[in-house]
Amino acid sequence: MTQAEHERHFNDKIAKEIKIEPNDWMPDEYRQTLIRQISQHAHSEVVGMLPEGNWITRAPNLRRKAVLLAKVQDEAGHGLYLYSATETLGADREQTIDDLHTGKAKYSSIFNYPALTWADIGAIGWLVDGAAIMNQVALCRTSYGPYARAMVKICKEESFHQRQGYESLMKLCNGTPQQKAMAQDALNRFWWPALMMFGPNDAESTHSEQSIAWKIKRFTNDELRQSFVDATVPQAEILGLTIPDENLKWNEERGHYDFSEINWDEFWQVVKGNGPCNKERLAARIKAKEEGLWVREAANAFAKKRAMKKSA
């Protein structure tokens, strides 16, 4: 087939909602966009283990400790599913991870904010996982097969993440005034970073348009952000918590909530590496990889020795 035929065939599949599979012909830019997006997503899962992981040893009771362990473990699993999806595109996992460590690849900025109190664990589950699910549910129909299948599995597993977070905050909001204040404080700190998770406004988003045309993305950043706000405001009301935005109000005409402009200076600063925990997060991942080096080498050396013994 000629290049033009390949392209026509590819576009035809996209139009007919036929999934693109690993060995199919695809435009190079489609492949690169996917590698960038999926690996960024994978990195977010793995870096996302850190703020919550730091509360595992301090979880307030045994049930919460087990739930938190299971949840953070799921994030590792999700990172792994997603790295697997990037490998089907020819991207080597370790190379992809090195790109994260050198700062070439990004991850979700939300994880550069610190988890300061136990209520933050609830807020992360409710808001951060809630925002992530909003994105991920849309991605279950993404045009690239392995990515879509990974997302289906992730969405199934993540459904407990948001619920456990909300339940945990519910407990605080029905508890002592001290606990409720802790919950409100967590919401105050995580609300805006959660809204930033959907990325820049559509007008500013460089990759959006092409990604939508290729059906990698099915909704724009602003559409998803609006859905998230609309879904979350009533949930906050049930908790009895106040969303930290004076301009937040229901717009009858639009059928949506209006809300204030995001502080984009802060967003871009955190993306560029100047958030409260960027350095700590990357340092922890780099340390894990470096300190694991001799372990991975040892296992490979052992496998080689055994294979030689077998063939001898």
């Binding site: 792994l80 697997s84 996992r93 990974a150 991975r296 296992a299 052992f302 496998a303």
Partner: peptide, 10 residues
């Protein structure tokens, strides 16, 4: 799906 491992046992 897939994963990384040094040998079949692991």
């Amino acid at each position: 799906g897939s994963l990384r491992a040094p040998d079949a046992t692991l």
